[in-house]
Design a binder for these strands. Structure first.
Length: 419
DNA sequence: TCTGGGGTCCTAGGACCC
DNA sequence: TCTGGGGTCCTAGGACCC
């Protein structure tokens, strides 16, 4: 029988900061979202202080200062690179792997006894720590959902960072005190509804009449119940190309001018196109959106979006920028203070099964231009070449006052050791 | 002053087809 | 008395995840 292991990095972003700055060990750390807006990651010490996930930073700044919390802007280049190191290490330890998020992966094992597997999980944990510096926890069980539960227990209680829920007795014991809101796939709204009908723990949900669950909540809930019962409904999935790519940011300052919005939106388009070409795909359309700051109740509010579909699916940044600027002009209104804008690439397909229009004229020169730009930027550094439309000053760019060095991706930001 | 960003899946309802 | 029935595709909205 197959056993799923969920490997999850502990407080991933905070751990990444610690790898290159060991003085942070044992200290409270928080990491802020883009624009230094919200708290999006916390070390255990920061959790203990009571700083909640998602809290607006300006409301917690004082508390942070008071407790000498180390505050960082998000450093996605560092976290992304560290994630790759963790994932490629895991791939060497187990060939059957699904990378589920930046800090989690499911592994699948066949033919291990549960004692052997427990020992191997402990080994995996040690190896990842040694190779990357990142601490991880491992949850073991018969389904993905149970492995998630096991991982949660590993984080809370396990001494060696591994929790085994493969045996029915251990499941019974754990699930009767496992709150439904902690189950993977049950969010805030569903847990309220479940409590209303008397389902309070994972065991309650597991033992509930599944046709009732199906009728009341749909197939997702029915599957969760099966999964909690040890029947696997969610297989390991291989990496799929994205079906849509979104690129958007809040601005570092409120923006009123069309010209600045054009720059921002062009820049986001360029970023999205890089991702698009990287996964060897083309997009059939692009949607542009913008809105004012809904938290500023005294400001007049406006939001809008507009999609444009291309005659032929494409990955050409220049063409998309020109189209997106036209769309933006149509939805732009003067006299509003804009807080955020973005674009979404729509109906993405692999570039080798491109459906051409009757009158299509694919421009191979442009294709090789994009390939060349990507190659140059890859060799001599990001943004070495970019479209003028993206702007040079980029005054609307996000704030990142507390970003740590990009230790692993920039030569001039390498870690320095003072003797 | 200051409130993230990027994704997926499912469902219901409408449009349309034969 | 008694409006056809069965199917697909698309979209918007809701829910969730990290």
């Amino acid at each position: 029988m197959s056993i799923f292991a969920l490997v999850d990095c502990n407080n991933f972003y905070a751990s990444c900061e610690r790898v290159f700055n060991p003085r942070l060990e044992g200290k409270p750390i928080v990491i802020l979202s883009n624009n230094d807006g919200c708290v999006i990651a916390r070390s255990n010490e920061a959790k203990k202080i009571g700083i909640p996930m998602g809290a607006p930073y300006y409301q917690w700044r004082q508390v942070c200062e008071q407790h000498q919390v180390h505050v960082f802007s998000s450093n996605y280049e560092l976290y992304g690179d560290m994630s790759q190191r963790v994932m490629s290490s895991l791939e060497r330890l187990c060939p059957d792997i699904e990378i589920y998020s930046i800090d989690e992966a499911f592994l699948i094992f066949d033919g291990f006894s549960s004692q052997e597997l427990y020992a191997y999980a402990v080994q995996i944990r040690k190896t990842i720590k040694q190779w990357t510096g990142i601490p991880v926890s491992v949850g073991l069980s018969l389904t993905k959902t149970l492995a998630k539960c096991a991982n949660k227990l590993a984080k809370g209680h396990a001494t060696d960072g591994v929790w085994d829920l493969t045996k029915r007795e251990s499941q019974d014991k754990a699930l009767t005190s496992f709150p439904i809101e902690d189950i993977w796939g049950i969010g805030r709204r569903l847990s309220v509804k479940l409590h209303d009908i008397g389902i309070h723990t994972a065991a309650d949900l597991r033992d509930e009449d599944r046709s009732l669950l199906r009728n009341k909540f749909g197939i997702v809930m029915e599957k969760i119940s099966h999964e909690l019962n040890g029947t696997s409904c969610l297989p390991i999935e291989t990496i799929q190309p994205k079906k849509q790519i979104i690129s958007s940011r809040s601005f570092g300052k409120l923006v009123t001018e069309l010209s600045e919005l054009e720059e921002a939106v062009s820049h986001y388009t360029a970023l999205a196109c890089i991702k698009l070409r990287k996964q060897k795909s083309v997009a059939s359309g692009i949607c542009v959106f913008l809105h004012t700051n809904r938290f500023r109740e005294s400001d007049s509010q406006y939001s809008n979006s507009l999609s444009y579909f291309f005659p032929d699916a494409t990955d050409d940044t220049g063409y998309m920028i020109s189209m997106v600027k036209q769309s933006l002009k149509k939805i732009y209104r003067k006299h509003f203070r804009y807080h955020k804008a973005g674009i979404m690439l729509l109906d993405i397909k692999p570039n080798h099964i491109q459906q051409l229009s009757l009158l299509s004229t694919i421009d191979t020169k442009k294709q090789s231009l994009m390939t060349t730009i990507d190659a140059i930027n890859k060799t001599i550094g990001k943004n070495s070449l970019f479209f003028c439309a993206e702007g040079i000053e980029k005054r609307w760019q996000i704030k990142r006052e507390y970003r740590s060095p990009r230790y692993t991706t920039h030569w001039d930001e390498l870690v320095v050791i003072n003797s």
